[in-house]
Amino acid sequence: MFKLPRYREPNFNTPFFMAAPDVITAEVKQTGVAPSGYHSTSMYPEYFKIDGEWRLIENTRMDCVPVIKKDGQIEAKEFRRLKIGDRVILGRTEDGREGIYLYTEGFSAGDTKGDIFAFRSGRSRETSFSNDYLRLAQLLQHDREHGHIVWVLGPAAVFDDESRKVMEFMVENRYCHAVFGGNAVATHDIEGALFHTALGQDLTTTENKPNGHYHHLDAINLIRRLGSVEEAVKQGYITNGLVHSCVKNKVPMVLAGSIRDDGPLPQVESNAVEVQDTMRVHTNKATTIVCLATQLHTIATGNLTPSYVVCNGEIRPVFIYAVDVSEFVLNKITDRGTLEVTTIVSNIQDFLFKLRKIMERDEYGYTRSNKEKSAPL
Protein backbone atom coordinates (compact mmCIF):
# COMPACT_ATOMS: atom_id res chain seq x y z
CA MET A 1 0.00 0.00 0.00
CA PHE A 2 1.34 3.40 -0.99
CA LYS A 3 2.14 5.77 1.86
CA LEU A 4 3.29 9.36 1.62
CA PRO A 5 6.67 10.15 3.16
CA ARG A 6 6.33 11.91 6.49
CA TYR A 7 7.64 15.46 6.67
CA ARG A 8 9.78 16.38 9.68
CA GLU A 9 10.24 20.06 10.39
CA PRO A 10 13.58 21.43 11.59
CA ASN A 11 13.97 21.73 15.36
CA PHE A 12 13.72 25.47 15.78
CA ASN A 13 14.10 25.17 19.55
CA THR A 14 17.86 24.69 19.28
CA PRO A 15 20.03 27.58 20.51
CA PHE A 16 21.22 28.44 16.98
CA PHE A 17 17.74 28.93 15.56
CA MET A 18 16.48 30.69 18.68
CA ALA A 19 19.38 33.15 18.56
CA ALA A 20 19.08 33.77 14.81
CA PRO A 21 17.95 37.27 13.85
CA ASP A 22 14.70 38.21 12.18
CA VAL A 23 14.87 38.70 8.44
CA ILE A 24 15.77 42.10 7.07
CA THR A 25 13.27 43.63 4.66
CA ALA A 26 13.03 46.56 2.28
CA GLU A 27 10.11 48.09 0.46
CA VAL A 28 9.67 48.03 -3.30
CA LYS A 29 10.16 51.54 -4.67
CA GLN A 30 9.54 50.83 -8.34
CA THR A 31 6.87 48.56 -9.79
CA GLY A 32 8.36 45.29 -10.98
CA VAL A 33 11.81 45.94 -9.49
CA ALA A 34 13.11 44.23 -6.34
CA PRO A 35 15.30 46.17 -3.88
CA SER A 36 19.03 45.43 -3.85
CA GLY A 37 20.02 42.33 -1.92
CA TYR A 38 16.63 40.62 -2.43
CA HIS A 39 16.35 36.94 -1.59
CA SER A 40 15.44 34.50 -4.37
CA THR A 41 13.28 31.46 -3.61
CA SER A 42 13.92 27.84 -4.56
CA MET A 43 11.69 24.79 -4.95
CA TYR A 44 12.61 23.52 -1.46
CA PRO A 45 10.91 24.38 1.83
CA GLU A 46 12.24 27.70 3.10
CA TYR A 47 11.67 29.20 6.53
CA PHE A 48 11.92 32.87 7.40
CA LYS A 49 12.18 34.28 10.93
CA ILE A 50 9.60 37.01 11.34
CA ASP A 51 8.82 38.63 14.72
CA GLY A 52 10.78 35.88 16.46
CA GLU A 53 8.90 33.03 14.72
CA TRP A 54 10.18 30.73 11.97
CA ARG A 55 7.53 30.63 9.22
CA LEU A 56 7.32 28.39 6.16
CA ILE A 57 6.57 29.88 2.75
CA GLU A 58 3.75 27.64 1.58
CA ASN A 59 3.30 28.35 -2.13
CA THR A 60 6.82 28.76 -3.39
CA ARG A 61 8.60 28.21 -6.70
CA MET A 62 11.99 28.93 -8.20
CA ASP A 63 13.38 32.40 -8.86
CA CYS A 64 10.74 34.46 -7.09
CA VAL A 65 10.98 37.12 -4.39
CA PRO A 66 9.53 36.45 -0.91
CA VAL A 67 7.15 39.20 0.17
CA ILE A 68 5.72 39.53 3.67
CA LYS A 69 2.00 40.30 3.42
CA LYS A 70 0.03 42.38 5.89
CA ASP A 71 -1.31 39.27 7.64
CA GLY A 72 2.25 38.00 8.18
CA GLN A 73 2.07 35.29 5.53
CA ILE A 74 4.86 35.02 2.97
CA GLU A 75 4.15 35.09 -0.76
CA ALA A 76 6.52 34.18 -3.59
CA LYS A 77 6.17 36.90 -6.22
CA GLU A 78 7.64 37.12 -9.68
CA PHE A 79 9.46 40.36 -10.37
CA ARG A 80 6.71 41.50 -12.73
CA ARG A 81 4.13 41.25 -9.92
CA LEU A 82 6.05 43.35 -7.38
CA LYS A 83 4.17 46.50 -6.35
CA ILE A 84 5.35 49.68 -4.71
CA GLY A 85 5.23 49.19 -0.95
CA ASP A 86 5.68 45.41 -1.02
CA ARG A 87 7.86 44.31 1.90
CA VAL A 88 10.60 42.14 0.35
CA ILE A 89 12.88 39.84 2.34
CA LEU A 90 16.60 40.51 1.84
CA GLY A 91 19.51 38.08 2.19
CA ARG A 92 21.70 35.80 0.11
CA THR A 93 22.53 33.13 2.72
CA GLU A 94 20.21 30.19 3.45
CA ASP A 95 21.69 28.68 6.63
CA GLY A 96 19.77 30.72 9.20
CA ARG A 97 22.35 33.46 9.76
CA GLU A 98 20.09 36.08 8.17
CA GLY A 99 16.81 34.61 9.37
CA ILE A 100 16.52 32.52 6.19
CA TYR A 101 16.73 28.73 6.29
CA LEU A 102 16.48 26.44 3.27
CA TYR A 103 15.60 22.87 4.29
CA THR A 104 16.25 19.94 1.93
CA GLU A 105 15.84 16.94 4.21
CA GLY A 106 12.26 17.22 5.44
CA PHE A 107 11.13 14.00 3.79
CA SER A 108 14.26 12.00 4.59
CA ALA A 109 15.27 13.01 8.14
CA GLY A 110 16.18 9.87 10.04
CA ASP A 111 16.08 7.77 6.87
CA THR A 112 19.35 5.99 6.16
CA LYS A 113 18.36 5.43 2.54
CA GLY A 114 19.15 9.04 1.68
CA ASP A 115 17.36 12.11 0.44
CA ILE A 116 14.22 11.36 -1.56
CA PHE A 117 14.97 14.34 -3.80
CA ALA A 118 18.59 13.51 -4.61
CA PHE A 119 19.64 13.48 -8.26
CA ARG A 120 19.02 10.07 -9.79
CA SER A 121 22.23 9.81 -11.78
CA GLY A 122 22.99 6.96 -14.14
CA ARG A 123 19.41 6.36 -15.28
CA SER A 124 19.56 5.31 -18.91
CA ARG A 125 18.03 2.94 -21.44
CA GLU A 126 19.73 0.08 -19.55
CA THR A 127 18.00 0.97 -16.28
CA SER A 128 15.19 -1.21 -14.94
CA PHE A 129 12.14 1.00 -14.41
CA SER A 130 9.69 -1.65 -13.15
CA ASN A 131 9.55 -0.27 -9.62
CA ASP A 132 9.03 3.24 -11.00
CA TYR A 133 5.98 2.09 -12.97
CA LEU A 134 4.55 0.35 -9.91
CA ARG A 135 5.21 3.35 -7.67
CA LEU A 136 3.63 5.73 -10.17
CA ALA A 137 0.53 3.51 -10.49
CA GLN A 138 0.14 3.46 -6.71
CA LEU A 139 0.74 7.19 -6.52
CA LEU A 140 -1.95 7.92 -9.12
CA GLN A 141 -4.41 5.71 -7.27
CA HIS A 142 -3.65 7.57 -4.03
CA ASP A 143 -3.75 11.09 -5.50
CA ARG A 144 -6.93 10.47 -7.46
CA GLU A 145 -8.80 11.14 -4.21
CA HIS A 146 -6.14 12.91 -2.14
CA GLY A 147 -4.25 15.16 -4.54
CA HIS A 148 -4.11 17.10 -7.79
CA ILE A 149 -2.63 15.25 -10.79
CA VAL A 150 -1.30 17.20 -13.78
CA TRP A 151 -0.27 15.59 -17.08
CA VAL A 152 2.17 17.52 -19.27
CA LEU A 153 1.91 16.16 -22.79
CA GLY A 154 3.72 16.38 -26.08
CA PRO A 155 1.86 15.36 -29.26
CA ALA A 156 3.51 11.91 -29.24
CA ALA A 157 1.02 10.98 -26.50
CA VAL A 158 -1.80 11.10 -29.09
CA PHE A 159 0.01 9.81 -32.19
CA ASP A 160 -1.28 6.28 -31.61
CA ASP A 161 -4.87 5.05 -31.32
CA GLU A 162 -4.21 2.96 -28.21
CA SER A 163 -2.25 5.67 -26.40
CA ARG A 164 -5.17 8.06 -26.97
CA LYS A 165 -7.39 5.46 -25.31
CA VAL A 166 -5.02 5.30 -22.34
CA MET A 167 -5.29 9.05 -21.90
CA GLU A 168 -9.07 8.72 -22.12
CA PHE A 169 -8.81 6.11 -19.38
CA MET A 170 -6.75 8.44 -17.18
CA VAL A 171 -9.24 11.30 -17.54
CA GLU A 172 -12.39 9.17 -17.26
CA ASN A 173 -11.10 7.46 -14.10
CA ARG A 174 -10.04 10.75 -12.46
CA TYR A 175 -6.29 10.10 -12.65
CA CYS A 176 -5.96 13.48 -14.36
CA HIS A 177 -7.08 16.82 -12.93
CA ALA A 178 -5.42 19.10 -15.48
CA VAL A 179 -3.50 18.85 -18.76
CA PHE A 180 -0.64 21.09 -19.88
CA GLY A 181 0.59 21.13 -23.45
CA GLY A 182 0.84 23.14 -26.61
CA ASN A 183 -1.24 23.64 -29.72
CA ALA A 184 0.02 20.38 -31.24
CA VAL A 185 -1.22 17.89 -28.62
CA ALA A 186 -4.79 19.20 -28.80
CA THR A 187 -4.73 19.70 -32.57
CA HIS A 188 -3.51 16.19 -33.36
CA ASP A 189 -5.87 14.60 -30.85
CA ILE A 190 -8.76 16.39 -32.57
CA GLU A 191 -7.33 15.34 -35.93
CA GLY A 192 -7.39 11.77 -34.64
CA ALA A 193 -11.04 12.08 -33.66
CA LEU A 194 -12.01 13.54 -37.03
CA PHE A 195 -9.82 11.61 -39.46
CA HIS A 196 -8.19 8.79 -37.44
CA THR A 197 -4.81 10.27 -38.38
CA ALA A 198 -1.99 12.26 -36.79
CA LEU A 199 -0.09 14.50 -39.20
CA GLY A 200 -1.84 12.56 -41.95
CA GLN A 201 -0.71 9.10 -40.79
CA ASP A 202 -3.29 6.52 -39.79
CA LEU A 203 -3.30 6.11 -35.98
CA THR A 204 -3.20 2.32 -36.25
CA THR A 205 -1.29 1.45 -39.42
CA THR A 206 0.83 4.67 -39.75
CA GLU A 207 -0.16 4.67 -43.45
CA ASN A 208 0.05 8.11 -45.04
CA LYS A 209 -3.42 9.11 -46.21
CA PRO A 210 -4.07 11.04 -49.44
CA ASN A 211 -3.92 14.76 -48.65
CA GLY A 212 -3.32 13.75 -45.05
CA HIS A 213 -1.05 16.73 -44.52
CA TYR A 214 -4.22 18.84 -44.63
CA HIS A 215 -5.91 16.99 -41.79
CA HIS A 216 -4.47 18.92 -38.86
CA LEU A 217 -5.15 22.20 -40.67
CA ASP A 218 -8.72 21.14 -41.39
CA ALA A 219 -9.12 20.24 -37.72
CA ILE A 220 -7.91 23.69 -36.63
CA ASN A 221 -10.11 25.39 -39.22
CA LEU A 222 -13.18 23.50 -38.02
CA ILE A 223 -12.63 24.46 -34.39
CA ARG A 224 -11.99 28.08 -35.31
CA ARG A 225 -15.22 28.10 -37.35
CA LEU A 226 -17.21 26.64 -34.45
CA GLY A 227 -15.48 28.91 -31.95
CA SER A 228 -14.26 26.36 -29.40
CA VAL A 229 -13.47 22.71 -28.80
CA GLU A 230 -16.40 22.62 -26.38
CA GLU A 231 -18.76 23.51 -29.22
CA ALA A 232 -17.20 20.83 -31.44
CA VAL A 233 -17.87 18.24 -28.74
CA LYS A 234 -21.39 19.55 -28.18
CA GLN A 235 -22.21 19.30 -31.90
CA GLY A 236 -20.81 15.78 -32.14
CA TYR A 237 -17.76 16.47 -34.29
CA ILE A 238 -15.37 15.21 -31.60
CA THR A 239 -16.50 11.93 -30.07
CA ASN A 240 -13.31 10.36 -28.71
CA GLY A 241 -9.80 11.08 -27.51
CA LEU A 242 -8.10 13.21 -24.90
CA VAL A 243 -9.79 16.52 -25.75
CA HIS A 244 -13.24 14.89 -25.80
CA SER A 245 -12.66 13.30 -22.38
CA CYS A 246 -11.36 16.56 -20.89
CA VAL A 247 -14.40 18.50 -22.12
CA LYS A 248 -16.86 15.85 -20.93
CA ASN A 249 -15.22 15.55 -17.51
CA LYS A 250 -14.51 19.29 -17.11
CA VAL A 251 -10.76 18.71 -16.87
CA PRO A 252 -8.97 21.96 -17.81
CA MET A 253 -6.43 21.96 -20.64
CA VAL A 254 -3.82 24.71 -20.41
CA LEU A 255 -2.39 25.14 -23.90
CA ALA A 256 0.67 27.36 -24.32
CA GLY A 257 1.30 28.85 -27.73
CA SER A 258 4.61 28.99 -29.56
CA ILE A 259 5.96 31.04 -32.43
CA ARG A 260 5.64 28.12 -34.85
CA ASP A 261 2.01 27.20 -34.15
CA ASP A 262 -0.38 26.45 -37.01
CA GLY A 263 -3.69 28.21 -36.52
CA PRO A 264 -3.63 28.02 -33.57
CA LEU A 265 -6.70 26.58 -31.87
CA PRO A 266 -8.85 29.27 -30.20
CA GLN A 267 -8.06 27.86 -26.74
CA VAL A 268 -4.29 28.29 -27.17
CA GLU A 269 -2.86 31.17 -25.11
CA SER A 270 -0.03 32.85 -26.99
CA ASN A 271 0.81 35.34 -24.23
CA ALA A 272 3.56 33.59 -22.25
CA VAL A 273 2.91 35.62 -19.09
CA GLU A 274 -0.81 34.85 -19.13
CA VAL A 275 -0.32 31.12 -19.70
CA GLN A 276 2.33 30.99 -16.97
CA ASP A 277 -0.20 32.44 -14.51
CA THR A 278 -2.79 29.86 -15.59
CA MET A 279 -0.32 27.00 -15.23
CA ARG A 280 0.59 28.25 -11.76
CA VAL A 281 -3.02 27.83 -10.61
CA HIS A 282 -2.46 24.09 -10.98
CA THR A 283 1.22 23.80 -10.03
CA ASN A 284 0.44 25.59 -6.75
CA LYS A 285 -1.76 22.67 -5.74
CA ALA A 286 -0.23 19.84 -7.79
CA THR A 287 0.79 16.72 -5.91
CA THR A 288 1.80 14.53 -8.87
CA ILE A 289 2.94 15.67 -12.32
CA VAL A 290 3.51 13.26 -15.24
CA CYS A 291 5.44 14.71 -18.20
CA LEU A 292 5.51 12.85 -21.51
CA ALA A 293 7.73 13.66 -24.51
CA THR A 294 7.90 17.43 -24.23
CA GLN A 295 11.18 18.97 -23.14
CA LEU A 296 10.23 22.63 -22.95
CA HIS A 297 6.83 22.17 -21.33
CA THR A 298 8.35 19.78 -18.80
CA ILE A 299 11.15 22.17 -17.86
CA ALA A 300 8.71 25.07 -17.63
CA THR A 301 6.36 23.08 -15.39
CA GLY A 302 9.24 21.93 -13.21
CA ASN A 303 10.44 25.48 -12.69
CA LEU A 304 6.93 26.53 -11.65
CA THR A 305 6.52 23.67 -9.20
CA PRO A 306 7.87 23.45 -5.63
CA SER A 307 9.15 20.21 -4.13
CA TYR A 308 6.32 20.27 -1.59
CA VAL A 309 2.75 21.39 -1.13
CA VAL A 310 0.65 22.05 1.97
CA CYS A 311 -2.57 19.97 1.94
CA ASN A 312 -5.01 20.35 4.83
CA GLY A 313 -2.22 21.73 6.99
CA GLU A 314 0.11 18.82 6.18
CA ILE A 315 3.33 19.19 4.18
CA ARG A 316 3.77 16.52 1.50
CA PRO A 317 6.13 16.08 -1.45
CA VAL A 318 5.25 16.84 -5.05
CA PHE A 319 6.21 13.94 -7.32
CA ILE A 320 7.28 14.60 -10.90
CA TYR A 321 7.72 11.80 -13.45
CA ALA A 322 9.34 12.67 -16.78
CA VAL A 323 9.29 10.17 -19.65
CA ASP A 324 11.09 10.45 -22.97
CA VAL A 325 12.90 8.24 -25.44
CA SER A 326 15.85 10.64 -25.35
CA GLU A 327 18.29 10.42 -22.43
CA PHE A 328 19.55 13.87 -23.38
CA VAL A 329 16.11 15.39 -22.79
CA LEU A 330 15.77 13.73 -19.38
CA ASN A 331 19.27 14.79 -18.33
CA LYS A 332 18.46 18.31 -19.44
CA ILE A 333 15.36 18.31 -17.25
CA THR A 334 17.24 17.26 -14.13
CA ASP A 335 20.02 19.75 -14.90
CA ARG A 336 17.49 22.60 -14.95
CA GLY A 337 16.81 22.29 -11.22
CA THR A 338 13.83 19.94 -11.14
CA LEU A 339 15.51 17.92 -8.41
CA GLU A 340 12.54 15.79 -7.39
CA VAL A 341 11.97 14.34 -10.87
CA THR A 342 11.95 10.59 -11.56
CA THR A 343 13.02 9.95 -15.16
CA ILE A 344 12.02 6.98 -17.29
CA VAL A 345 13.58 6.30 -20.69
CA SER A 346 10.78 4.91 -22.85
CA ASN A 347 8.77 5.29 -26.01
CA ILE A 348 5.64 7.14 -24.87
CA GLN A 349 3.17 4.65 -26.34
CA ASP A 350 4.97 1.75 -24.63
CA PHE A 351 5.02 3.67 -21.35
CA LEU A 352 1.28 4.35 -21.45
CA PHE A 353 0.39 0.75 -22.35
CA LYS A 354 2.46 -0.65 -19.50
CA LEU A 355 1.23 1.87 -16.96
CA ARG A 356 -2.42 1.15 -17.74
CA LYS A 357 -1.83 -2.59 -17.57
CA ILE A 358 -0.35 -2.22 -14.08
CA MET A 359 -3.19 0.03 -12.96
CA GLU A 360 -5.80 -2.49 -14.09
CA ARG A 361 -4.45 -5.23 -11.84
CA ASP A 362 -6.05 -5.92 -8.48
CA GLU A 363 -4.10 -6.34 -5.26
CA TYR A 364 -3.42 -10.02 -6.12
CA GLY A 365 -1.92 -9.22 -9.52
CA TYR A 366 -4.88 -10.42 -11.59
CA THR A 367 -6.28 -8.31 -14.41
CA ARG A 368 -9.69 -6.82 -13.67
CA SER A 369 -12.71 -7.86 -15.71
CA ASN A 370 -13.85 -5.73 -18.63
CA LYS A 371 -16.76 -4.51 -16.54
CA GLU A 372 -14.45 -3.40 -13.76
CA LYS A 373 -12.06 -1.76 -16.20
CA SER A 374 -14.69 0.74 -17.25
CA ALA A 375 -15.43 1.80 -13.69
CA PRO A 376 -13.23 3.87 -11.38
CA LEU A 377 -10.65 1.74 -9.59
Rank of each mutant, 00 (worst) to 15 (best):
R8G: 06
K69S: 09
N208E: 13
I344A: 05
E9L: 09
G212T: 07
R316D: 05
L203C: 09
Y214I: 12
L339Y: 11
E172A: 10
E327S: 08
K357S: 13
P376I: 10
Y214W: 06
C176R: 07
V23D: 00
R80T: 02
G91F: 00
I220E: 02
H244Y: 15
L339V: 11
M18Q: 14
V254P: 03
I299F: 04
V166E: 06
D335I: 02
K49L: 15
E98I: 02
A322G: 11
Y103W: 12
G302M: 05
V341K: 01
G72C: 03
R361P: 02
Y308H: 14
G212E: 10
F2N: 07
M170K: 07
V150S: 02
G200I: 12
G236E: 09
F195G: 08
F169M: 05
I50Q: 03
D362Q: 11
I84G: 01
L199Q: 07
V171D: 01
F17P: 00
V329D: 01
G257W: 04
P35E: 05
L330V: 07
E207W: 13
D218M: 13
I358V: 13
D202Y: 10
V179A: 14
A34H: 02
T278E: 13
P35L: 04
G32R: 07
V150C: 03
N11Y: 09
Y364S: 15
R120T: 12
V23A: 05
E58L: 08
G85C: 03
R81K: 08
I50F: 07
L242W: 05
V281E: 15
S42V: 10
E145A: 11
L352N: 03
I24F: 08
E340C: 06
L222G: 08
A34G: 02
P5V: 15
E9C: 07
L194P: 00
R225A: 11
D115L: 14
I220A: 10
P21M: 09
P317R: 09
F48E: 00
Y366Q: 15
G122M: 14
T294Y: 04
R356G: 03
E274M: 14
I348M: 09
E126K: 15
A19Q: 12
Y321V: 06
G236S: 14
G263N: 02
P21W: 04
I289Q: 00
I358R: 06
L140E: 02
P66A: 05
S346D: 10
R280D: 04
E98N: 03
D202N: 13
M1A: 15
N211Y: 13
I344S: 04
D335P: 02
E231N: 09
A26F: 09
I333D: 00
I89S: 00
R61Q: 07
I289V: 04
A272I: 11
Q295L: 08
V166C: 14
K354C: 10
D324Q: 05
V281I: 14
N183V: 04
V229T: 08
A20Q: 02
K354A: 11
H188Y: 14
L226A: 05
T104C: 06
R80I: 08
T288M: 04
P66H: 10
Q30G: 09
F180E: 12
R225I: 12
E363P: 05
G257R: 08
G365M: 06
P210Y: 12
D111G: 13
